[in-house]
């Protein structure tokens, strides 16, 4: 660090800026390639194909829902419900994740473990909370205000300004009841300001990494597909 206090006699005349696209270079850079190579080689084992997607799936292809978000939330309930039932004797009512937790796109064609790390890079664990009706109301108001495609499953929501119509497990939402909600440990601890998940009536850590759950499920399926099904709409 420079500590001199002497003033340079230069005046700023003009500032010009432009942003330049970086695209795959034909020229290589041996020094950097040499540095990357051992790391890249170690990650090669993630490039094993684990499944196939019959379409490109993204978290950005809908307004309040997305094809990739729907698929991931559906898979999580499918995989976590038996585990949860085993430890609690109860069923998961619905699932809520966050839009920001799903990063990449799932391209059409072969799916590798590498892709799953890109789509879900975080160390998130599946967590089930039991919330009372008022907390569920908070959750619904949060989704109404957020107005982005936070992935959900097992719940149907219709917004009409401040009016919210909600069906959970085929029945109309009852504020006097409590519900079991599947989410991630990150969101349970208040991530993305989902504060309604803090201090639940019951907290069950399933100790399953969400990425691993997805990888194991994709391995079992012949191919993946998903669609927007109006599970959450705004009138």
């Amino acid at each position: 660090m420079i500590a001199s206090c002497e003033k340079a006699n230069y005046l700023l005349n003009d500032i010009q800026g432009n942003n330049i696209k970086i695209s795959d270079s034909l020229i290589t850079n041996n020094q950097l390639e040499y540095l990357i190579a051992p790391y890249r080689n170690e990650l090669k084992r993630l490039e094993k194909v684990i499944g196939y997607s019959s379409q490109s799936l993204s978290v950005r292809d809908g307004k309040l829902e997305s094809t990739l978000g729907n698929l991931i939330a559906d898979i999580l309930i499918e995989e976590c419900n038996p585990v949860f039932k085993n430890i609690s004797g109860k069923n998961i009512d619905f699932c809520l994740l966050n839009y920001g937790g799903i990063r990449g796109t799932m391209n059409k064609g072969n799916i590798t473990q590498y892709d799953l790390f890109t789509i879900m890079p975080f160390k998130n664990l599946a967590t089930v909370v039991r919330l009372d009706g008022n907390k569920i109301l908070e959750l619904l108001k949060y989704l109404n205000k957020e107005n982005i495609a936070h992935p959900i499953s097992g719940i149907n929501i219709e917004f009409e300004n401040e009016k919210i119509t909600t069906i959970i497990g085929g029945e109309e939402f009852d504020v006097n009841k409590s519900y079991y909600v599947l989410t991630s440990n990150y969101l349970q601890e208040g991530g993305d300001k989902m504060n309604f998940f803090k201090d639940p009536i019951e907290l069950h850590e399933l100790n399953l990494n969400i990425r691993d759950i997805l990888i194991n499920n994709i391995k079992k399926r012949k191919s993946l597909s998903s669609k927007l099904d109006n599970r959450i709409i705004r009138n």
Partner: peptide
């Protein structure tokens, strides 16, 4: 995906020099 580039242009300032 992108690289930002901002250029700052300076010239010697005679007025400042005088005051110095």
């Amino acid at each position: 995906i992108n690289l930002g580039k901002i250029d700052f242009y300076f010239s010697k300032n005679s007025i400042l020099e005088k005051s110095n």
